[in-house]
Amino acid sequence: MGVAAVTRTRIFPLALGLGALAAAILSVEALIRIGVINRFIVPLPSQIVPAFERVIVEEDIVERFRLTFFEAFTAGAMITVVGVSLGFLLFRINILRQATETWVAALASAPTVLMYPLFLVIFGRSAWTIIMMGFVAGLPPVILKTIEGLAGTRRVLINVGKSFKLTGPQLFTKILFPAALPTIFVGIRLGLIFTLINVVGVEFLINFGGLGQLINDLAERYDLPGTYAAICFVILVSVCFFVLTEWIERWLRPVD
């Protein structure tokens, strides 16, 4: 099998990605050992690996992972449903869009995490405070990208729909939505990033459980290998979401 044939196989990109990750970890290990990176700030990867077992066994990681995943998943589902609906509404009602689009964009860049005391007052010290903060932070990109995707649908595709006498809902489900799907999913992925950051951040701030609280605990105990191991679990949550969104996008729109 030639080089070109090997690179075309499914396993090659996966192997290349894992190889690059392993190389990066080894580089960090080497840089710490020769003193380029301070080992009191970044622990040795060889110390983090055994910390995984300790974190799993002693820190109830499964339950914490489940809670963080649940909060992020709920907020993610909410930003998808509400964001796409609001995006469609603003796309359809131009005056509403003109009146609010700048504010929505401004909200996307606002540090909403600082509003956690207000959310604590409204929702109490519960998972809903974390979910709602994740929801508010992740909503703007979904709205903005939904508008962008729908408005970017090629005019000729809409005209094809009209020529076949599609009704309004048919035009949306058969043409506008599938055409806008890639852009909408960019918004959902961006929204999920903001949501996850906020979920873990608020868990960290209000000490309510989940991976954020664990990171806070371990950091306060100055257990650096354990802290980094817990951060790896947050990355795992993120990977789960991205695999899930990719799978849903391929299911909804098999080719691109």
């Binding site: 000729v156 020529s163 098999p254």
Partner: peptide, 29 residues
């Protein structure tokens, strides 16, 4: 008055649906 079922339109621009296979495109109407 508006698009008429007796008139089928073919447009100048590329107008196939990229998310549908060829047969799904043709079967659309």
């Amino acid at each position: 008055r508006g698009p008429h079922p007796a008139i089928g339109m073919v447009f100048q621009e590329e107008s196939t649906f990229p998310w549908r296979t060829l047969i799904e495109n043709v079967a659309f109407p």
